[in-house]
Structure formats: structure tokens, C-alpha cells
């Protein structure tokens, strides 16, 4: 019970602890139920938009992976696309060359992405700031150029084609309506969400919070900072790789753009729009991003870039907690009003 109310970062004002805890529990439960109810309802109501929904789920998972590294641990990276791309290419190549089984391929992709995260993390996590940022940029640019050149392996800028993916568990076939892909993505997202939720509320997650806030002090009280960062970086890489594998399986195609700097940029935009350190920020951000992109692209194919850019600028300047902060502002108003009525 206490853990649930912990999840609400916007704890009501301390003067009203009794009602705060009572309502906090319910609010927490509702807060958890709404996003997943939407995920389930969308499946029945989407109609022709189901594959768009699958894409949103995949990007939610991708943004969630970034929330662990960037939001909680404060690792400012622009290289997250590297893990997404490696996961996607690993799943695609596994399906072509090893086995068309999606579960095996997915696990293989996660393992490859995690290993890559572990190795690169071990090499670069001792640096900070701009140097770290540049190192992540160098990694993702390096992979992009390599995938572009190694046509025999990756198909270059034509993308990786010709993969066959078997039915999941031999039963659920990937069809053109994308029902299997949607459920598959939703289940994978749910599993990763549970893992992330457990982690950020564990002592380990708390230590990440501390490292973000004051690395030097955490080191002083004996936290093995580098190891903690490496652990969360690897986990984040595994999750991003999983999202990449989902994307490869859902579309049976891997485009070169999964490794581009723009992919890193977009996932960061989503997370920031939704709000960091909320876990559900990724949900809001990815959904809003896709809505905006879909709506504005009808006006002009490049208009979405303008809108997203302006939204990003506005978020950084005026709404540092992201769109979910709008809720917090509202909640604060609600509690202020309640307190006033209680007082009377």
C-alpha cells in the first residue's frame, strides 16, 4: 500500500497526511489502471489504427528504457538509438540466419543489446558531461555508418528484408491486421514495466536517484557509483534492444534509420514531453508524439517537425516536468481547494 502511494511523485501537502494517504492509495490505483485500460481498450477500438498502436507501444518501451538511464540515473545520452538499432538488427538477422522463432530471436536481441551496453558502458561511464555525450554520439554514428556500408549483412540503406517470423508459441500468427503484433508488444511492455517499477522502488533505484542528485556525496557514503551506473545502463540497453526486436518482428523489416541520431533525438523528445522519472511519462510522451505527428503530417509532411520542435522548446523553458506535470499542477490546485473546504 505504501509502495503504491510512493509512485505518486506529487504527494499532497504534508498538513493533510491522513486524507492524503487515504486518497493517495486510490489515486495510485486509478493512476495505474488508466494507462493499461487504454492499452487494452485500444485493441478493441482501434480498427485500422492497430499497427500505429503497436508502434506507439514499441516507442513507449524505448522511452521507458531511456527513463531508467536518463531520468532516474541522470545519464545524459544521445546514443540510445544504438541499442534500439542493435536489438532490431539482431532480431532481424537471427530470424534470417538462425531461427524464425520470435521468442528466441527476442531473447537473443536482448542479450546482444545488453552485452553491447555493458561493453560500451564500461568504456565510457567514467566520463561525464559533454565528453560522455560526444562518446555516445560517436558510438551511434559509428554504428550507423557501419550498417550503411555493410550492405551484405544489413542491406545498407535499403534496409534488412526477407525475414520470416514464426507464430508466437507456434500458435499466434503475425497477420496483416497486426493483432498478434499489438498483443505481443503490449505483453512485452507490461513485463518490462513491472521490472522497471520494481527496480526504481528498490534500494538500488533509490541509490540511482542519489547518484543523479549528488554523485560526489553518494561516493562519499560508500555507494559503488560506477557499478550502479553500469548496471542501469546495461538494463536500459537490454530494454531498448527489446523494443528494437519488437519493431523488427512487428514489421518484418529493419530500416537504417533505427540507428540514426534522429531516432535518439525523437525518443528523448518523447520522454521529456511526457515527463521523466514517472515511468508513465513515456506512455504519455510517445502517445502524444504520435498523435501530433499523425495530425500535423496531414497538413504538410514536414509540419510535424516544426510542431515537435516548438513543443520541445516550450517544454524545456516552461514545463520542466513534462506533460504529466500538468496533472501535478492540477492536483496541487485540487488539494489546495480541499484544504480550504476542510478548514471551514
Amino acid at each position: 500500500m505504501a509502495a503504491v502511494s510512493d509512485d505518486k511523485p506529487a504527494a499532497p501537502p504534508t498538513t493533510n497526511l491522513g486524507t492524503g494517504a487515504r486518497y493517495g492509495w486510490w489515486l495510485g490505483l486509478i493512476g495505474h489502471a488508466i494507462p493499461w485500460a487504454i492499452v487494452v481498450l485500444f485493441f478493441y477500438m482501434a480498427g485500422g489504427y492497430l499497427s500505429l498502436g503497436t508502434q506507439v507501444l514499441i516507442w513507449i518501451l524505448f522511452a521507458l528504457s531511456l527513463d531508467l538511464a536518463l531520468g532516474y540515473a541522470g545519464i545524459v545520452t544521445l546514443g540510445q538509438a544504438a541499442f534500439f538499432g542493435i536489438g532490431a538488427y539482431a532480431a532481424g538477422l537471427f530470424a534470417i540466419h538462425v531461427s524464425p522463432d520470435p521468442i528466441l530471436g527476442h531473447l537473443a536481441a536482448i542479450a546482444v543489446a545488453a552485452l553491447f551496453g555493458l561493453i560500451t558502458g564500461a568504456m565510457i561511464l567514467h566520463t561525464t558531461g559533454v565528453t560522455f555525450l560526444m562518446l555516445t554520439l560517436a558510438i551511434v554514428s559509428m554504428l550507423f555508418e557501419y550498417a550503411n556500408q555493410a550492405r551484405s549483412l544489413t542491406g545498407g540503406d535499403d534496409g534488412l528484408q526477407g525475414m520470416t517470423v514464426n507464430p508466437i508459441f507456434g500458435v499466434f500468427e503475425f497477420n496483416i491486421f497486426g493483432e498478434t503484433a499489438y498483443v505481443y508488444a503490449a505483453v512485452v511492455l507490461f513485463i518490462w514495466f513491472l521490472i522497471s517499477w520494481r527496480i526504481v522502488h528498490s534500494p538500488f533505484g533509490r541509490s540511482l536517484d542519489g547518484i543523479r542528485q549528488n554523485t560526489r556525496r553518494m561516493r562519499a557514503i560508500g555507494t559503488p557509483v560506477w557499478w550502479r551506473l553500469l548496471a542501469v545502463y546495461t538494463l536500459s540497453a537490454a530494454m531498448a534492444g527489446s523494443a528494437g526486436a519488437l519493431s523488427a518482428h512487428a514489421t518484418r523489416f529493419v530500416g537504417l534509420s533505427v540507428l540514426s541520431l534522429l531516432t535518439s533525438g525523437i525518443v528523448t523528445v518523447m520522454l521529456i514531453l511526457g515527463g521523466t522519472r514517472r515511468l508513465y511519462g513515456a506512455f504519455v510522451g510517445a502517445a502524444v508524439y504520435y498523435l501530433v505527428q499523425d495530425e500535423t503530417a496531414r497538413i504538410s509532411p514536414y509540419f510535424w517537425e516544426l510542431v515537435v520542435g516548438l513543443m520541445l522548446i516550450a517544454t524545456v523553458l516552461f514545463l520542466e516536468g513534462g506533460l504529466l506535470d500538468l496533472g501535478r499542477v492540477g492536483q496541487r490546485l485540487f488539494w489546495r481547494l480541499r484544504r480550504r473546504t476542510d478548514g471551514r
Partner: peptide, 21 residues
């Protein structure tokens, strides 16, 4: 750095869109 990275990426998006238009 994070805010700086994000805001300047936002400017890149806007500039790209305007140049295309």
C-alpha cells in the same frame, strides 16, 4: 546539459521544418 541538448534539438527541428517549407 540535458535541457541544453533538448532545447537546441528543438531548434534543429524547427530550422529543418522551416527550411523544407
Amino acid at each position: 546539459e540535458l535541457s541544453q541538448v533538448l532545447l537546441t534539438i528543438g531548434i534543429v527541428f524547427v530550422a529543418t521544418a522551416v527550411a523544407t517549407e
